[in-house]
């Protein structure tokens, strides 16, 4: 069974249709990349998977999004449990204006852990996971916004790891970072792939080619092509895909 499946998913912002009949299947413990020119709907699609689009006024959705076989737009969906299971890393690193410790402990605290020893344990494990522990272990009470952008993005990933999600959605996670930091975050993504199903939106085609196993190409709200990354980049089936990856437009 696929981890995530969308069935005839359409999304409207008022009268504008941003997603048109999208059928996407995401496999477990793989990195799936969504590429396409600006405004093609790739971020919108990503945000339907943890229902972040609910925050926007006037959004209407038809079709289904199945995660582990359950429609997350069904009546019984608990948004708290859904977002605990489907975490998100944003385009601009967004650590909270709190201490480093409080950032990582934020998720566990909101989900009810109060025990200090337990929290310390979770924070240590999460920071080790993103390779920040050695650098920051003596600075846990420091203000998180003073870290470098790369460290901030790692901290955001640690914050996510601390709530033990199943799926990690990444919305252009490296677009605010320099090339060296980008490479190191990509290495971290390979690490994370062992435990998590990752869906990444990127405008950087090389990044999609480097990190992902599956790639979807979107254009004007449609999922034009979807398949193994190697196939999509070397022998695309659709003419539009070929034109995009060879830089004819975009």
């Amino acid at each position: 069974m696929n981890k995530i499946e969308t069935k005839n998913l359409s999304l409207f912002y008022g009268t504008f249709q941003a997603l048109i009949d999208v059928n996407l299947s995401v496999e477990e413990k793989m990195i799936t990349a969504l590429i396409g020119p600006s405004g093609c709907g790739k971020s919108t699609l990503l945000r339907t998977l943890n229902r972040m689009n609910d925050l926007i006024d006037g959004v209407r959705i038809t079709g289904e999004v199945l995660i582990d076989g359950e429609n997350i737009y069904g009546k019984e969906t608990d948004l708290v449990l859904l977002r605990k299971k489907v975490g998100m890393v944003f385009q601009r690193p967004n650590p909270f204006p709190l201490s480093i410790f409080d950032n990582v402990a934020y998720g566990p605290r909101t989900h009810g852990s109060k025990n200090k020893a337990e929290l310390e344990d979770i924070v240590e494990k999460a920071l080790k996971h993103v390779e920040l522990w050695e650098v920051l272990k003596d600075k846990l009470d420091h203000f998180a916004l003073n870290l470098s952008l790369e460290q901030q993005q790692r901290l955001c990933i640690a914050r996510l790891v601390a709530v033990t999600p199943d799926i990690v959605l990444m919305d252009e996670p490296c677009s605010a970072l320099d090339p060296v930091a980008t490479q190191r975050i990509e290495e971290l993504m390979f690490e994370l792939k062992k435990n998590y199903t990752i869906v990444i939106v990127t405008h950087n085609m090389q990044q999609a080619a480097r990190v992902s196993q599956r790639t979807g190409f979107m254009l004007l709200g449609k999922l034009v092509e979807y398949g193994e990354t190697r196939q999509v980049f070397t022998t695309p089936r659709e003419k539009k895909t070929e034109e995009y990856i060879t830089g004819r437009y975009g």
Binding site: M52, G87, M88, P97, Y106, V163
Partner: peptide, 27 residues
């Protein structure tokens, strides 16, 4: 308060009220 703080908190599974008193008010 930047919107990204609010989104970050909600995306971690916090409720609206938890987001208000743990992130928005401190910010």
């Amino acid at each position: 308060v930047p919107r990204i703080y609010k989104e970050g908190s909600l995306a971690l599974g916090a409720t609206h009220w938890q987001t208000i008193y743990r992130v928005i008010i401190p910010a």
